[in-house]
Design a protein around this nucleic acid. Structure first.
Lengths: 241, 241
DNA sequence: GTCTATAGCCGGATAGAC
DNA sequence: GTCTATCCGGCTATAGAC
């Protein structure tokens, strides 16, 4: 591949480019949230509702990540959002349901974005790199939400408790499918596809579970992505170099 | 290295061998717990205290892993242990302190065992394999406790909140030091030691954070350990094969 | 739509009998 | 050492005024 073309291709995958393209704005997500749950939301004015939902969701995630969802009282949420107790309850039916609703929103968003990006690529090697970068970049944009998802699963009600497990397996499957395709086409050589998929997922999760560590060490998401991709490739690319 | 000798060396590192050698019994840990905190424990008869502490700690970890420490009420703990509310409070000063005390015990145990095993080895390559296996095997023996540590950090009181962070960095450092030594001796070739250490840690943690996944797939700890070691080695051993 | 005030309940902790 | 009975503070959730 000519150097210029390769450089151009790689340019597509920078974090800034992804951020612009994906354009996952708080407002857009909250509008989706509002439309999906309008039956449960007493406030009917969309403009007001979306604005306050953004505030409520953002604050819930922040407080939960600081002290845990269960430790966060409705009074805390009221104080930090500036909305009264009564007002809060016109945006969701109860504390437990709020957690379920946020989880639901997040799960949908992640899979949608991931799939969109992977479908663009042709070769398994490119698909893999794209999937790794898309996952890492997405978790960088929505880092608080990713952390929140991971830590606050036990507080979900029984009906939704399986959602994170399913979501874990679903994103892992995306990687496993790419690996399988690569092996089939003779591009990858892999001893254990299932375990390779697992550790890829583990490395991706580490990025948002140990944010404090990587921030302190001044490692940005692009550097981490590059490292992870090379680390994986050493194990799966036939005759590297 | 002759085949028989290598086989013999590897024999030392099977999970069963480790389990026997390390001999980390519940009772021994609880005796340590009792001696360390006897000032706070009202029950003075060691035999009774150790027996009930074992019950309390085990039940606390089980319930916390099911529904979260914060969701677990003292009444739940009373019901599940068969001890009355009053009795529970003669074993620890309060719910919050119980959490701190269990964390303290666990952190100490992990580092002690890890260090003991690593010190036995000579070459960096052997040290690395031993460290990986010791960490995985230990987390297999104490899997509930490891999971508990990871998930229940936000509920610690402020004074102890830094303990898990410190512990994360401490065990990571063990691996980074081994990597550095290997590079210095010309055995390893590593682009980024810090990041390599990070992803090693991430792969080790995945073992106890996703127990359900690996159990379902019938992957045992030895298979996982072997895979992880090969995965790492492909990235750090000079001129493999 | 948002507020204040309050109902009603649950959970941590303890006193004191055995 | 362990139990039962009870206190009390803080929590979620709602009623009703504005």
């Amino acid at each position: 591949m000519p150097r210029a073309v390769e450089a151009d291709r790689l340019m597509n995958m920078t974090f800034n480019r992804f951020k612009k393209e994906a354009s996952i704005t708080e407002e857009e997500l909250c509008r989706e949230f509002f439309n999906e749950h309008c039956r449960l939301i007493k406030v009917k004015n969309e403009k007001i509702a979306v604005k306050n939902l953004a505030l409520i969701i953002k604050t819930t995630i922040r407080l939960s990540n600081e002290i845990g969802f269960y430790s966060m009282s409705m009074r805390d949420l009221s104080r930090e959002t500036g909305l009264s107790m009564g007002a809060l309850y016109s945006y969701f039916p109860g504390k437990g349901r709020l957690l379920d609703m946020i989880h639901h929103l997040g799960g949908k968003t992640v899979m949608r974005v991931l799939q969109t990006y992977i479908e663009k690529e042709e070769s398994p090697a490119e698909k893999l790199e794209t999937a790794v970068r898309a996952h890492l970049y997405l978790s960088e944009i929505m880092k608080d939400m990713f952390y929140f998802f991971y830590m606050e699963t036990k507080n979900l009600n029984k009906k939704n408790r399986k959602t994170p497990v399913a979501s874990e397996l679903l994103t892992e499957r995306v990687f496993i499918d790419i690996l399988k395709e690569g092996v089939k086409k003779g591009i990858f050589k892999i001893d254990d596809i299932l375990l390779t998929g697992s550790v890829i997922k583990a490395m991706l999760q580490d990025w948002y579970l140990k944010r404090w560590k990587y921030r302190k060490r001044r490692i940005n998401v692009e550097k981490y992505a590059g490292f992870v991709i090379r680390f994986i490739n050493k194990n799966i690319i036939k005759e590297l170099k």
